[in-house]
């Protein structure tokens, strides 16, 4: 017969009555007996934990100390990105002093990990999950102001949001094409990954949303090992819900 389901095993571990068929099965099934024994051990550890006192929250001064230590290492620096009106011809690399705050680099690195995992899951997925359109943007070429395709934010059935970019990439860019989401003040931003063809899909890391980061930006990044935005944007659009 089928194994007992989790709820039934939990009921047994808590000493509640269950169906006779389930009670008989668990006596003759090693798998279910092992599960039951593990749940009984959990119940016993709960009883044992009752002999210890409740948890003691630290005094408020501890958080103040943490906040002060963390704040002292993340001092704000001038906005590193060229304004929205910047044309492609205006090539200028930021001075080294205008590096991003460390957390932006950290966020970009973490985003890379997420995208890597997502790329694999796309390859192995058999069916396309259900999607809901969250926002979209018309993309413009910043040099010519010509129409340069679209960007859409779609929500997958598992809740993750994905930026889908359809644009015509230059045939001979001066570096890799990197996709960013940027806030309205053009101060905060997050890299979503590199665009390698006319179509790209990028998972948006948790904590970033299109209301706070509505600008889609595609930049040309030379292979110089600098993870920050080059300042050389070629295409932009503003996401609207």
């Amino acid at each position: 017969m089928r194994h007992c389901d989790d709820e039934t095993l939990a009921a047994l571990a808590l000493g509640e009555p269950v169906d006779a068929a389930d009670a008989t099965h668990v006596e003759s099934c090693d798998t279910c007996a092992r599960e039951l024994s593990a749940l009984r051990a959990t119940a016993a550890s709960l009883v044992d934990a009752g002999t210890s006192g409740p948890l003691v929250a630290p005094p408020t001064s501890v958080w103040a100390g943490i906040a002060a230590e963390v704040a002292s290492e993340a001092e704000p620096r001038p906005a590193p990105v060229v304004p929205l009106t910047a044309a492609r011809g205006a090539r200028r690399r930021r001075e080294p002093g205008h590096m991003f705050r460390p957390w932006v680099v950290g966020a970009a690195a973490a985003a890379g990990v997420v995208i890597g995992a997502f790329g694999i899951s796309l390859l192995t997925r058999d069916t396309v999950p259900e999607q809901t359109l969250v926002a979209q943007a018309a993309l413009s070429d910043l040099a010519s102001e010509a129409d340069a395709g679209t960007a859409r934010v779609e929500q997958r059935s598992d809740g993750t949001e994905v930026l889908v970019v359809d644009t015509t990439v230059p045939s001979d860019p001066d570096g890799a094409l990197e996709v960013w989401l940027i806030d309205p003040d053009v101060v905060g931003m997050v890299s979503l990954g590199f665009l390698t063809g006319d179509h790209g899909e990028f998972e948006i890391p948790a904590g970033y949303d299109v209301v706070s980061f509505p600008i889609v930006d595609i930049s040309v990044e030379p292979a110089d090992g600098d993870p920050t935005h080059s300042g050389d944007s070629i295409t932009r659009g503003i996401l609207e819900s």
Binding site: L55, P58, V62, W103, G106, A107, V190, A206
Partner: peptide, 19 residues
Amino acid sequence: AGAEGSLERLYRSVSPLVH
């Protein structure tokens, strides 16, 4: 991802256990 406020939320959640 180093999102703003995430450290404080984590602190609210787990600091009684750590302490």
